[in-house]
C-alpha cells in the first residue's frame, strides 16, 4: 500500500529533480546555454528576413519600365534636394566648429550611424523589441541609441554574433531623458504599453507645472543629450495630456508614439565615435 502511494509520487519527484537541477545550475552556465539557444535560432529569422527581401526584389522586378522610370526620376529629384541640404549641414557644422574654437567650448559629441535591416519584431504586452541584422560583426555596442527617419526607435539591449536586440521606446522598461520642444528643462520619458489596434503609448514624468497645451495643439517630446546616448532633438512622440502629479510640483502625462514603430524595416544605430575607436583598439 505504502509502496503504491510512493510510486504515485514518482512523477512529482522527477519534475522536482529537473527543477532542482535547473535552479542549481551556475549562472555562468545558464548564460552560456542562453547564448547557445539564441545563436541556434538566430539563423531561422535571419533567413526569413532575407527571404522577405528577396520577395520584395521579385515584386519590384514585376513592375513595368514606365513605373521604374517614374520612380528613378522621383529619386533623382530627392537626391538633388538632399544634396543641397547636405551642403547646408556641412556649412553649419563648419560654423559650429568655428564658434566652438572662438569661444573655447568643448566639442559636441560626434556619432557614426550604422544602418541595419529589421529581421524580426516581438511586440507583446510586456516587452516590445526588434531584432536587427547587425551585431558584434559590425561592432554594435550594448546601450547604443537606435533611430529612424521618424525619430527615436529605442536602445540596443543585447548584441549577438550577427544580430542585435533593440528595446523599443514603447517598451514598459524603457526610460530616457527628454525635453518638450522649445524648452530646455529636462523631463523623464518612459514606455508604457502597446494597446490593441491603436498607437503605442508612453508616459512623461517630472514636467514643470508651467508647461501647458496651447490651443489644443499636442506638445512635441524630443530627445535630450543629457542621457549621453541620444543626440538632441529627435522626436519621441506627442504629449496628448498633462495632469498634476502626486507631489504637486510636477505634472505627468501620456505620450502618443508613432505607429510606424511596429512596422519598421530599416533603422540606424547611433554609435558615438569614441566607442567605435575603443572597439577598434580592443580588436587590434
Amino acid at each position: 500500500m505504502a509502496l503504491k502511494r510512493l510510486s504515485q509520487l514518482k512523477p512529482v519527484a522527477v519534475l522536482m529533480a529537473f527543477l532542482i537541477a535547473w535552479w542549481v545550475l551556475p549562472v555562468v552556465l545558464k548564460r552560456w546555454v542562453k547564448t547557445g539557444f539564441y545563436e541556434f535560432q538566430a539563423p531561422i529569422f535571419y533567413l526569413e528576413s532575407q527571404a522577405e527581401d528577396l520577395q520584395s526584389y521579385w515584386t519590384l522586378r514585376g513592375q513595368s519600365k514606365r513605373e521604374m522610370i517614374a520612380a528613378g526620376r522621383d529619386l533623382a529629384r530627392e537626391n538633388a534636394r538632399q544634396s543641397v541640404q547636405l551642403q547646408e549641414a556641412r556649412n553649419l557644422a563648419r560654423e559650429v566648429e568655428r564658434l566652438e574654437s572662438i569661444l573655447d567650448l568643448p566639442s559636441r559629441p560626434d556619432y557614426h550611424y550604422e544602418v541595419a535591416r529589421v529581421a524580426q519584431r516581438d511586440l507583446s504586452a510586456w516587452w516590445q523589441q526588434i531584432t536587427i541584422r547587425k551585431g558584434a560583426n559590425y561592432n554594435i555596442p550594448v546601450g547604443a541609441a537606435v533611430v529612424y527617419r521618424g525619430g527615436v526607435v529605442g536602445r540596443v539591449r543585447e548584441v549577438h554574433a550577427y544580430t542585435s536586440t533593440v528595446e523599443l521606446v514603447s517598451s514598459s522598461g524603457f526610460r530616457m531623458a527628454a525635453t518638450v520642444l522649445g524648452e530646455d528643462r529636462p523631463v523623464t520619458y518612459q514606455g508604457l504599453i502597446n494597446p490593441p489596434f491603436s498607437n503605442p503609448l508612453g508616459e512623461v514624468l517630472n514636467v514643470p507645472a508651467d508647461i501647458k497645451h496651447t490651443g489644443g495643439q499636442p506638445l512635441l517630446l524630443v530627445s535630450s543629450p543629457l542621457g549621453g546616448i541620444f543626440p538632441a532633438g529627435l522626436t519621441i512622440g506627442e504629449i496628448v495630456s498633462l495632469a498634476p502629479g502626486s507631489d504637486g510640483f510636477f505634472q505627468r502625462g501620456s505620450v502618443r508614439l508613432n505607429p510606424d514603430l511596429g512596422s519598421l524595416r530599416e533603422v540606424a544605430v547611433v554609435i558615438p565615435l569614441y566607442e567605435e575607436e575603443e572597439a577598434r583598439t580592443d580588436g587590434d
Partner: peptide, 11 residues
C-alpha cells in the same frame, strides 16, 4: 515568430 512579427504592429 513569423505570425507574431506580422500581428505585433496591430497590438
Amino acid at each position: 515568430g513569423m505570425v507574431g512579427d506580422a500581428t505585433g504592429a496591430l497590438g
